[in-house]
Every structure is written in structure tokens, then in C-alpha cells.
């Protein structure tokens, strides 16, 4: 039985989801902490409902970005060298490993976005217009952050640099995603064009995905 690329991707995704479910970092630490961060802002600036409604969407995206970086950092230190060696000697295609880790990270981030999004709607009274476009934005941001996190984790793991380098790489690279997400929301609210912002996010996702797949082998080498 010859293993196909997507068969290996699926095996990696299933492994990571199972590990996360057992470990529970995302469920019991990251998501509640994200929700608490959103709760702290009204406490800090007061209960001005109009102001909260105005800044709410921006705060939501900032929290998503910051916790996306946090997820990236945790992914960077997730596999030990013996675990990486064992997977390599099973014949795991480095590109399949990259795609699998990205997909599982994107699933975690989508769950994070959904739960924290519900909290944000309740706390900031955020209005929802153009749910299809918003869903696409959530998907693109999750995919983009997952790709950036997985790629930078691979870069850090292939060098002698510590995982502290991951946020320094991911945070600035995620700025186009933050801009795209906030401008898409504002565009939907104000009724002006959002296509260029959506295309910006799509471009980020495609470029990082191509770089990640093409560099998966060289980055695995020492």
C-alpha cells in the first residue's frame, strides 16, 4: 500500500487534533484567556456602550492575532527531535507534514475565533452584516495565521534560534491579515468595496502556503 500525500496529511491532522484534545491547552487555557482579555478592555475603559461598539471589532481582531501568535509559539515547541526523526523515518513527506500541521492549527484557530467571537458579540454588542463574507474572513485569517505559525516554527526548528523568535516573525507578517480583516468588517458595515481586502488576505494565504510547501524539505534538513 503506497501512501499518498493527502493520506499522510490526514494522519498528521488526526494526530495533532488527538494530542490537543488530550492536552487541552487550547480548550482550557487559550480560549478562556482570550475571552478574559476581551472582558478586561471594557473594565479598563469603562462602560461607554457606543465606544465599545466602535472599538469592539478591532479589539476582537487584535486578540485573534495575538492568540494566533501564541498558538504558533506552542506549535513551534510541540515536536521533539526524536518525534520528528521517527516521523521522517516513517516516510512522512515534509510537505505533507507542513500541510497537516497547518490544517490542525487552522482548525484550532477557527474554534478560537468562533468562541471568542461569540463573547465579543455579547460584550461589545457588535453588529453582524454580510455573514458569508465574515465567515470567509475568519477562514482566511485562521488559515493565514496557521500557515505563518507553521512556517516560522519550521524555520526556528531548523536553526539554532529559540522559540522566542516565533512571535517576532509571526506578529509583523500577520499585519496584512489584521488589516484585511478589520477593513473587510468596516467595509461591510459602511457598505463600501471589500474585494481588494479579501484578495489581500487570499494573496497572503497563497504566498505563505507556496513558500511553506516548497521550503518544507530544505527546512527539515540540518
Amino acid at each position: 500500500m503506497i501512501t499518498g500525500f493527502w493520506h499522510q496529511v490526514r494522519a498528521v491532522v488526526d494526530r495533532d487534533l488527538l494530542r490537543e484534545r488530550r492536552q487541552g491547552d487550547m480548550l482550557w487555557i487559550t480560549i478562556p484567556f482570550g475571552a478574559i482579555a476581551l472582558l478586561l478592555i471594557p473594565l479598563a475603559i469603562g462602560t461607554d456602550a457606543v465606544l465599545l461598539r466602535e472599538i469592539g471589532p478591532g479589539m476582537y481582531w487584535v486578540i485573534v492575532m495575538l492568540f494566533g501568535v501564541l498558538v504558533a509559539v506552542s506549535r513551534a515547541s510541540r515536536e521533539t527531535l526524536p518525534q520528528q526523526d521517527a516521523s521522517a523515518l516513517l516516510g512522512l513527506d515534509p510537505a505533507a507534514g507542513f500541510v497537516g500541521r497547518t490544517v490542525s492549527s487552522a482548525i484550532f484557530l477557527l474554534i478560537f475565533e468562533a468562541v471568542v467571537g461569540i463573547v465579543a458579540i455579547g460584550l461589545y454588542d457588535i453588529s453582524i452584516i454580510g455573514i458569508g463574507w465574515l465567515a470567509l474572513t475568519l477562514l482566511l485569517v485562521a488559515a493565514g495565521l496557521a500557515l505563518l505559525g507553521t512556517l516560522t516554527a519550521a524555520i526556528v526548528n531548523s536553526s539554532s534560534a529559540g522559540t522566542a523568535l516565533v512571535p517576532l516573525l509571526v506578529a509583523p507578517l500577520s499585519v496584512p491579515l489584521l488589516l484585511g480583516a478589520t477593513q473587510t468588517y468596516d467595509g461591510l458595515q459602511g457598505g463600501y468595496g471589500i474585494l481588494s481586502w479579501v484578495l489581500l488576505m487570499v494573496a497572503v494565504v497563497l504566498v505563505v502556503a507556496i513558500i511553506g510547501v516548497l521550503t518544507a524539505r530544505p527546512l527539515q534538513e540540518t
Partner: peptide, 21 residues
């Protein structure tokens, strides 16, 4: 050991089998 501590022993082997084909 290059196995994943969060997975059971059988799950570790199932992962290995799936990746190795």
C-alpha cells in the same frame, strides 16, 4: 523514545502505520 505521550500506545502505532502506508 520518538512517540507522542498524549496518544495511547495503540494510537501511536496507528499513526505510524498510516504515515508509513
Amino acid at each position: 523514545p520518538g512517540i507522542f505521550p498524549e496518544l495511547t500506545l495503540a494510537e501511536n502505532l496507528r499513526y505510524a502505520a498510516r504515515v508509513a502506508g
